[in-house]
Write a protein that binds this DNA or RNA. Structure first.
Lengths: 203, 203
DNA sequence: TGAGATTGATTGACACTGTCAATTTACAGT
DNA sequence: ACTGTAAATTGACAGTGTCAATCAATCTCA
């Protein structure tokens, strides 16, 4: 039960301050800039202070990843409230987030920087993914046979958006960071996959 | 015109030896293990020797990326010679390579480790991608309207395979490294996208 | 042949990094 | 007041990339 006042000389518990600064650095310098010492420096504490709150650099970044995923999912909710198609909300939010916060998105999927064995992180993603699949089923209950095809479709959609987001930051696939172009492209790809499949099986 | 003999005390020019060792380390320890000093150590030279052949650590890895892309494309050719569908050869090779050589595949797309502004690397990828698009067109010349749709389809396919390959190494999408399962999944996704589209417009 | 230049490797240093150990500081409870 | 605990500090160690100075061997050209 930590009191709102400080233990030492920091207002908020140092931990939240560290994470705040870490995000500022991440957005500016990318994942490589997020060093324990840089974060400590930016928070005005000694280089070993963070060790009291994060065992590792990896654990700091893992906790950041959890927050990033939270953010992303709240974007999904926001979008989902103005658009009826929840599955689309997932995919479009995924892409938009990756373009708006490239370094956060990068960090999220970096297996060497983030511990994906972390139960909370894994559970949160799993839950989101299952919800995504459910929203796909709800969207069109009478797709082919069992749920196997829907699972495949969901994987294909998510992977496609993710892959496009990642590849856009290299050279392949128009390297322009023009977000509008990217969104048009994503839209076309989605109707390609969604449209074709659902047309194929009824409707 | 370097003679086949050594300049100092190395048989082959040190540069190729360095790259060889670098690949061995990469395959074993992943991208983070490929440090200038480790490569030098493994080659039995001093820590600053590599500087004569690679300006940067980044440049070493960029040259490795070029070789990786070469390898991958030669896999495409090999597969393409036994399968008539060249577009499929691209996609299946892409996936198989990513599973057989996970660390090489990782390195290839790491923007912070590899310089994608490098003209040769960029040109090689661009050429491959255009060839892939061409093979898609050749596969089914009478798809919708212009080449715009094909371009979108190509992007969707490549992105999907790439995204699936990457996401498989986290937790989402069966984390099992069971290659067979992955290949079945990829196959299903491909027929989803390819099948649906082509069915949709003729055939 | 021999003198000079050039290439390639070495050593040593610097500023970083993550992490650990020992220490000091501040607070809480009895 | 004393003790104990939690948190922050200092200091060290082994790594890292990169740069400068040095040194050796080869090549070039007269």
């Amino acid at each position: 039960m930590p009191k709102p006042s400080s233990t030492h000389l920091h207002q908020a518990s140092l931990k939240t301050s560290l994470i705040e600064r870490a995000f500022a650095i991440l957005d500016q310098l990318g994942p490589n800039g997020v060093t324990i010492r840089a974060v400590a420096r930016a928070s005005g504490v000694s280089h070993a202070a963070p060790a009291n709150h994060f065992a590792d650099r990896r654990q700091l970044q893992t906790e950041m990843a959890i927050l990033i995923l939270d953010q992303l999912l709240s974007d999904v909710e926001r979008r989902s409230s103005v658009e009826t198609d929840r599955a689309r909300a997932y995919l479009l939010s995924l892409f938009e987030y990756s373009q708006s916060w490239p370094h956060r998105y990068d960090l999220l999927w970096r297996k060497d920087l983030v511990n994906w064995e972390d139960p909370q992180l894994a559970a949160n993603l799993e839950e989101a993914y299952q919800d995504f699949i459910q929203s796909l089923i709800r969207r069109s209950p009478r797709v082919n046979s069992g749920g196997e095809d829907i699972e495949t479709l969901g994987t294909a959609l998510w992977a496609m958006v993710h892959g496009y987001a990642q590849l856009r930051s290299t050279r392949i696939f128009e390297a322009r960071t023009d977000k509008a172009t990217g969104e048009r492209r994503i839209d076309a790809m989605l109707s390609l996959l969604l449209g074709a499949v659902f047309v194929h099986s009824g409707s």
